[in-house]
Each structure stands twice: as C-alpha cells, then as structure tokens.
Design a protein around this nucleic acid. Structure first.
Lengths: 168, 168
DNA sequence: TATAGGATTGACGTAAACGTAAAAGGTGCG
DNA sequence: CGCACCTTTTACGTTTACGTCAATCCTATA
C-alpha cells in the first residue's frame, strides 16, 4: 500500500522505506537500530520539543514538506535539518515568513550566494532590532527599578505621610 | 447647553468650565492662558503622543473616565495623571489589565497600602520577566552573531567549497 | 472484537492594543 | 450657507504562532 500510494503520486520509490514491522512501532520506544529514514509526526515532535500542531502548522506555511504514506506524514533527515533551521530562526527572533523567504532561496545545484546574502542582510537587521529591544528593556528595567524604590519608600513612610501620588 | 447636559446627568457643576469662547478653540492653537481645566480628546492625544483611538480604548477598558460635555469627552488633571501612569506601566511592560488592577485599588481615603503592595509585587514579577527577556535576547544576539560569522565565512569561501549546509 | 494510541483535516479561539473605516452630529469662520 | 475640523459610536480587521476541540480513521495488541 505504501509503495502503491507513492507510485500513484508519481514519486519514484528509490529511497528505503520503513519495513512493515518498523512502521508498526507506534510506541516510539524502539530507537531504531540502524538509520530510521522516516519518522512520523509524533516522534518528530518529541525529538525537537514541538507539538504536532506546530509541525502541521509549519507545513501549512510551506516550511516543511514531509513525504506521505497515504495520509501519514513521514519526516526525513532533510525535514529535520529544515526544522532545526526554523527553530534556530525563531530563537533569534525571525518570523516564520522570514525563515521561509530564506529557505525558499535554497538551490542544491548552485552556490546559494543569493540565499546567503539575503540571510546576512536579514540577520543584520534582526541584530539591530535585538539590540534596540535590549536597550528598551534596559530602559524599562531602569524605570521599573526607580518606581519600585519609590513605592517601597511610600510603603515605609505610609505611617505618617498621607500618600503622594502613586495612582489616580 | 453644556451645563444643562451636565445637570441632567446629575453632576454638580462646581468646577470651572471652559468659556464659550475657549470652547470655540477647536484648532488647539490657543495654548490656554491660565489653567485649562478641561481638554478634549484631540488635545489630550497630542499632549501625550497617543491616538484618539487609544484614549477611547483605554476608557473602554475602564482605565480612564473623562467627564462629558454631552457626548464630548473632557479630560482633567486627574485623567492626565492616570494616563501618565498607564503609559509608564506600558513602558515597563505591564499589560493594561495589570495597570487596571493596580489603579482600581486606589482609594483616596486610605493609605493605599494594598495598592502599593500589589504594585510592588507585580513589579517584582515584571522585573524578573524583563531580566529573563534580556537574557533571551542576549542569547539570541550571540547565536545570531555566530550564524552571521558562519554565513560570511561561506560567502567568502563560496568560490571553492561546494557549500556546506546553510539551508535545506 | 474491543480498546488504546497515534494520525488526519477542518476550523474556530486566543492574546494585545489598537487601526481603520463608516455614518453622523456639532461648530465657528469666511 | 457651506466647508473644514473635531467629535461620537459601532464594529470588523490586523498581527503571529500556534491551542484546542471535533469528528474520523487506521492499526496493533490483549
């Protein structure tokens, strides 16, 4: 059935597929003795600490493109690599749109100069944003600390003074 | 008409109202010679760098309570003080809900100890959040810098090496 | 065969803080 | 008188990254 479906979709089945026995391992307790080429969504999610919803969402957004066994998603090393990049991108603050833009430029047959340049360009801008954010946060921390000092002051003086103006 | 409406709403008109002449100053070019007790939404917005929508939104959320001249909002010093607090709160990262919670505890007849304690409590938590955010940002900056270095490396080496693994 | 576990698609919900019309009313000035 | 300007309420739209059902399906195991 698996191969039939893939054949129907016109995909040449040249890669090794999981054997029926391995596919039966729903409970992902079996760590796969050799090179588990395909993993399903549950295992993938656990491995990378994301939810199923997230993986489907990324796919919906065109960031992932797992193979299919009928309707079941099968993720390969390629998908894992892409997911890693997505997670890295999100970690440094890129939007999924940005990540997609950069990924879409990938061309396995070229030098990917354009992709790298775009990535560098976006990274520089993102770095600037991060630094600005950092400044804002530092500022906020400063103001908040000041306010806290003032509030503490008021609390300690609240026995005599008829409150100043902490709120209206 | 102005006073009539206020009278209808049962509000004692003890405070000084803008004279008909002053009220005519729609174009807020007249900076008000004395103590302009009431300002309308446009002037208020300009004075504090927010939009009309924002002021109405804050009112809708129960954060502001301007008087009314019929249907026209009239803001007083009190509202200005509150708005300042709101803006400070937002600056340090409080949600409007938090701000409201704190403001709602204000009691002009008491010591406001509870309010101050709540503010201090929320502030401590917020400070922790800000510091955590800062750490995350620093982390992101680090990772991003690393990636950028790697990308630059790849760009400079792209003449010989057949690209490594910048994307999939 | 019943059951427990995955998996699928579809689609509405969430959070925050407004933005953006839309339709209409009031007003002093030229 | 009419324009330009200010104001009002109502209400849907925006953004981002998923969360949370809901209804179904498939499958291996006890």
């Amino acid at each position: 059935m698996v191969r039939d479906r893939d054949a129907i979709r016109g995909k040449p089945v040249t890669m090794k597929l999981v054997s029926p026995g391995e596919a039966a391992a729903n409970t992902n307790d079996i760590p796969s003795e050799a090179g588990e080429e395909f993993v399903r969504i549950g295992e993938m999610a656990k491995k990378y600490g994301v939810t199923l919803r997230t993986l489907r969402f990324y796919e919906d957004k065109g960031l992932l493109n797992p193979h299919r066994d009928g309707s079941t998603r099968l993720y390969t090393r390629r998908d894992k690599a892409r997911l890693k990049l997505i997670l890295l991108g999100r970690k440094v603050g890129f939007s999924l749109r940005d990540v997609k833009q950069m990924m879409d430029l990938y061309d396995p047959t070229g030098t990917n100069t354009k992709q790298l340049r775009l990535a560098l360009d976006k990274s520089e801008k993102q770095l600037a944003r991060l630094q600005k954010q950092r400044a804002l946060i530092d500022d906020a921390i400063g103001e908040l600390s000041n306010s806290m000092t003032a509030v503490r002051q008021m609390l300690s003086e609240r026995t005599a003074a008829p409150q100043a103006s902490a709120a209206g």
